[in-house]
Design a protein around this nucleic acid. Structure first.
Lengths: 206, 206
DNA sequence: TCTGACTAGTCACTTTCTTGACTATGATGA
DNA sequence: TCATCATAGTCAAGAAAGTGACTAGTCAGA
């Protein structure tokens, strides 16, 4: 059970997709998000370290609300469907605090491409090479995206300065890791593709 | 459904935990593993890109056998419980080949610590710092482990040479990525811990 | 005018994962 | 001698995650 914590953390951090979309006064600390917005955030930033589909988020938000960890309010809209905005309650904060104190499960990764590379000696490497290069280019795009996000978050300040004095450095720090990850992803993908290409078709069979 | 492919890939690659444990003549290509050995492999090397508990592996092996993708044979042992060794069949290879050709799902990570860091501005950072440093030291240990594994796999050759001519480079390539990952993990953990430490107790609340 | 995309979300079903307990035997160590 | 670890698994229940399909209105473009 940890999607809930990812959701709480995401609700707290103002790294919303919308930007200055619509009119909300963004005043009071941790933002308010609709399930829909949250789903988008999970597709971009948060997806860095957690992944979830919209349906899961809606379901989780419902549960969290029932338990009083988030509070939702209805917002009536004329031109588009009504929506419910959620914010973290005190109880939600307490839950997050407890979670932070508890020991973490070891992080885990699951990666189809790695499985394929692991078996690279026993299968046709053609399609694999393609996928590796595709992966590398996706990683490059993400690298750029994260770079922009980071610049935006730290505003005018340089990194050291921001990390010393900025408020809300959490998302910045996780984004930093995402950036490093994608950089490595890219390099690895290119390297492996190059190695496999150089070796040509399968050699070691069985 | 991709644990099965991870299992097949793991069975193929001779990166077994046991080393020269027990007496088997290791002759014919992809190794043979018991569920138990496989479980250990998943706890070390493979855990790099896939994670699974022993029960899942036993269950998956049973399914794979029923479908003819792996073949098991009973090995009677005097001094310890009997075991069943599995190897990948032709059909299993074909399944892996098909999997390799199909498009991969985007890799995904799930990491409690990252969630906690994301929320770092709203919670007590004390325990978090501890966990980050713990993580860093685990990562360092893994870094060393992977370094050794890599040296062992490439034998006397240097890396370029090995990747050009070695047989069974798949596990080597995935291990390379694991190494890079853990290196980044370590650096990130230390960096974030230092940043949080320098900031002292919570400042930005709500 | 029809198509498709965007906003906003719900329902039902299936697959996977995780937890915990249980069976056996032999070897190691206090 | 008693406890614990390592080998080698099995079973069952429940929580979490993933998939697919569906509603419904708005807006932009062909």
């Amino acid at each position: 059970m940890a999607l809930r914590h990812a959701v709480l953390a995401a609700l707290l951090t103002g790294d919303g997709s919308g930007g200055s979309d619509g009119g909300g006064s963004d005043g009071d600390g941790g933002g308010e998000y609709s399930g829909y917005q949250l789903a988008k955030a999970f597709d971009i930033g948060v997806a860095n370290f957690w992944h979830a589909l919209p349906q899961q988020l809606y379901a989780e938000l419902a549960k969290l609300e029932k338990e009083g960890l988030v509070a939702g309010r209805q917002v009536v809209q004329e031109t588009r469907p009504n929506k419910r905005l959620f914010r973290v309650t005190e109880a939600g904060l307490a839950e997050l605090a407890a979670f932070t104190t508890a020991t973490s499960k070891p992080s885990f990764i699951r990666d189809d491409l790695m499985v394929k590379v692991q078996a690279a000696d026993s299968v046709d490497t053609g399609p694999l090479i393609e996928q590796l290069e595709e992966r590398a280019s996706v990683a490059e795009a993400k690298t750029e995206l994260f770079g922009k996000l980071l610049r935006k978050m730290r505003g005018g300040l340089d990194e050291e300065e921001f990390l010393r004095r900025g408020d809300r450095i959490g998302p910045y720090l996780t984004c930093l890791r995402g950036l490093a990850l994608e950089r490595e992803n890219r390099e690895w993908g290119l390297r492996v593709a190059a190695v496999l290409r150089a070796r040509g078709p399968i050699r070691a069979e069985r």
